[in-house]
Amino acid sequence: MSTAIAGLTAGPTVGIGQIAASDHRDVVISALGLGSCIGVVLVDPRAHIAGMAHVMLPQSAPTSKGPPGKFADTAIPALLEDVLALGADRARLVATMAGGAQMFGAGSGAGLFNIGGRNDESVRAALADARIRLRAHDVGGSFGRTMQVVVGTGTVTVRVVGGEAVEL
């Protein structure tokens, strides 16, 4: 499903807990298979800068270990820092998010908290804290999503199994 977009360079694939940002116009940043995880994209369309975080859990704790991109509350500030470092204008930044699904049915006994829903809430709260406008979102449901952003245009697409890429 991660087929290259014509004329563009397949850029970084953002794994769980990772953050990637770029100012190369023809680069595409992707997160392959977001389940309960949430992909958050920040774009400055005029400066042609975009970044993506692949958030796994809603909230870090003082004893938490792992990269900042792992938790919603630490991922948004870290992603913001990365796009600002590339020269993005904070006032122009807009966010797009996708994921936050409930992949396994309820009542399985596997200790299933609704992590997807909690990730959704936490990402929104962190964006609000950072005063970044959420431009579009595609969250919830019970299916996985692959998310891509074209750095040059800021175009964000989401694809599900058996579906076409849909622009958000």
């Binding site: 499903m1 769980i16 997160a31 392959l32 298979g33 977001l34 389940g35 309960s36 995880c37 796994m56 859990l57 699904a101 409930q102 992949m103 396994f104 049915g105 399985s108 006994g109 596997a110 200790g111 299933l112 908290f113 992590i115 997807g116 019970s142 299916f143 996985g144 999503r145 692959t146 199994v161």
Partner: peptide, 19 residues
């Protein structure tokens, strides 16, 4: 009892690993 899903590997694994 197992929960079962058929979907993108990253999505299913990510959700399981989040637990």
């Amino acid at each position: 009892p197992p929960a079962v899903g058929v979907d993108l590997a990253g999505a299913l694994l990510g959700a399981a690993l989040a637990q």
